[in-house]
Design a protein around this nucleic acid. Structure first.
Length: 279
DNA sequence: CGACTCTCCTGGGTGC
DNA sequence: TGCACCCAGGAGAGTC
């Protein structure tokens, strides 16, 4: 599932290959993928044909490409299964191709592919360089303006279990189920531990683990980047072999050897070590 | 407003 | 071989 490191890999690839070129055609194959563009698919295409992107920006799991000459941007959210691919125009069409952007140099085209359609693309107004729809998203732990102490204090105002707080993108962004479980394992915290009951220093430590695990994943993701296309595999990917908790039900904890538990949590799963991560 | 639940979506895997 | 069912989960909408 794309979380911050995966989206950052996509940002780098799209920033390298899709900027500074003029869009010639925009084809929407699934209206659902542009549902967040309130004026509809036709307006979506109209705003992009003839446009060019100046850069690729990211906050948390949101990615956006500012459009030259106007205060708006193409916003991309990958959701569960979204991919941004840069491919030759003659490359075979994917089964779940939802939106295609072709450029007037007949070079590599940008394809938005999304099986489960939780993701989407839309054009949004920029306010101080940030899409209106992204304004409520908190700074992510890899943002240079991110402040660990401030974030930790904010987390500690919450009465909910700490994992729920980590997944709330308006408190800290970019964290999903995988990196939440990994960071909690490293910090030896139970996911239901009320955030307000955790000491400030421990929350600071937890955020440090989030940063570490994300940077480690990003480093591996960077090496798997293929210059011919941008490929984020939403399923498992390159970092999966380095996981300590997520997806390791029944396998020995890398610290104490006890089998990792998988527990139902918020209509999904949570993984923890029953010995290292007690309530 | 905070806390929490519900819902959207598809296809691979599983058990009978 | 067929089919019902489970599971993955980001995040906005809705409820209390």
């Amino acid at each position: 599932m794309p979380e911050l490191p995966e989206v950052e890999v996509v940002r780098r690839g799209v920033g390298q290959w899709a900027t500074g070129r003029r869009i010639e055609t925009v084809e929407v194959f699934a209206d659902r993928s542009v549902r967040r563009h309130e004026a509809g698919p036709t307006d979506f295409a109209r705003r992009l044909v003839g446009a060019s992107f100046s850069s690729a920006e990211r906050r948390g799991k949101y990615l956006w490409l500012p459009i030259d000459g106007v205060e708006s941007a193409l916003v991309v959210h990958l959701g569960m299964s979204g991919q941004c691919l840069m491919l030759r125009p003659d490359a075979e069409r994917e089964r779940h191709l939802r939106v295609r952007f072709r450029f007037d140099d007949n070079g590599m085209e940008l394809r938005f592919v999304d099986q489960r359609m939780f993701g989407g693309v839309y054009v949004d107004e920029l306010i101080d360089g940030v899409p209106k729809s992204v304004a409520h998203i908190a700074l992510d732990p890899l943002d240079e303006r991110f402040d660990v102490d401030t974030c930790a204090r904010r987390i500690r105002t919450k009465t909910s279990g700490v994992k729920r707080v980590l997944l709330d993108q308006s408190t800290i962004s970019g964290v999903g189920n995988i990196y939440a479980d990994e960071a909690l394992w490293r910090a030896r915290l139970h996911y239901e531990q009320p955030a307000e009951k955790i000491p400030q220093a421990k929350v600071v430590e937890l955020i440090g683990h989030i940063q570490d695990v994300m940077n480690a994943a990003l480093a591996v993701g960077g090496t798997s980047f293929d210059s011919l296309y941008v490929n984020v595999n939403g399923e498992s990917g390159y970092f999966s072999r380095d996981l300590d908790a997520y997806g390791r039900e029944g396998e020995p904890c890398h610290r104490c050897g006890r089998p990792i538990l998988r527990e139902p949590w918020m209509n999904r799963s949570s993984y923890r070590c029953p010995n290292c991560q007690r309530r």
